[in-house]
Design a binder for these strands. Sequence first.
RNA 1: GGGGAGAUACCAAAGCGGCCAACUGGGGCAGACUGUAAAUCUGCUGGUGAAUACCUUCGUAGGUUCGAAUCCUGCUCUCCCCA
Length: 375
Amino acid sequence: MFTIRAKDKECKARTGVLTTAHGDILTPVFMPVGTGATVKGVLQRDLAGEMDARIILGNTYHLYLRPGTEILKSAGGLHKFMNWDRALLTDSGGYQVFSLSGIRQLSTDGVTFRSHIDGSKHLFTPENTIDIQRIIGADIMMALDECTPWPCEYKAAKKSMYLTHQWLDRAIARYRETGPSWGHNQYLFPIIQGSTFGDLRKESAEKAAASGMEGMAIGGLSVGEPAEEMYGMIEVVNAILPEEKPRYLMGVGTPANILESIERGVDMFDCVMPTRNGRNGMLFTTGGIINIRNNKWANDFSPIDNGCPSYVSRTYSKAYLRHLVISGEMLGAQIASMHNIAFYLYLVAEARKKIEDGDFLKWKKEVLTKLSGRL
RNA sequence: GGGGAGAUACCAAAGCGGCCAACUGGGGCAGACUGUAAAUCUGCUGGUGAAUACCUUCGUAGGUUCGAAUCCUGCUCUCCCCA
């Protein structure tokens, strides 16, 4: 169930609460990505503790390949397996249709992957991805979709969108005829496609809205198109989606992307950026973006980010983190990931506060000015 | 004291007459990364220049040659073996 708490008067931003079997999620929310049953480099205790992440992601494709459904079944589901008693969302593998395009084959029935681990063949269908997500026990399951690359011809985008819609009907049918494996309620979110074509996005949003599901996802964006085009598509889609349902923009994004999307009425986000880019030395801070590997930080003993409330951000110096990252020390990747996630969660927490205080737009402008700078 | 091997850019190491401003690693410098095949990938790394180019480099001083990191001679230094 989703309850709207506050609406901004000057834009479409809103705050709300999404209730799940594993706790309430305050929106707008950022969901750290934990593809293979781990948010890389970060303990669940820290995620739930100081950072207060209410929900994280897992990935159906990755978990199905490893550890596999049998082990997840024996474990009693993913929550127990990974010691995470807060909410989980699993992506269906639709993104892998896109990112593993070299080793997969599409058919109406579903998509055949060659495992990136051992090359073995596996068929994903709208039905069996629901079954797998039932075993995983995600609080929010995603329908199997085809995430189209960008740029994409109109005809191809349309064909792909219809395939996604067909798959959605089948996923919902399977969802309705099955129940949760572990006794707790699971939502299923449909995914809107349509590339960067307004009329396709509109049609796809109507399809999702008509599904009656508890929330709706916008997929197929942030795949290379200019940010302005992405924002345009969000506006088209959000004009159609029911107000009283949460909207999840998949895979987004940069801090700026997130704030711009919140302004346009998006409630949920996930992105690998804070962790992956963190591991690669990129830090998001309240003062701007930092490449911690750069020589200019070698003698900077000031904290990573005093403006960010997390322990690692205020405790460790830039010079120390630079040393760790450059030396390839594990702790460097961990601290960078923890800081970035803490920063993202802090950012959306502030956004919620500002929406409720009624000065989101003014705050957003100030934040973006600072964030646009490269330090 | 006798015999042998070697000195190449920040480090290691190839090259042994022209295709060499010099392979390749490492290090260094910078960039990319958006529902994670990523603790990954890319570029640059003698100087000046946007570039054709030009200038200065392969221990050192000479020499041979149209042309030398590559061949010859002296010197300096390093390492190994035998006494």
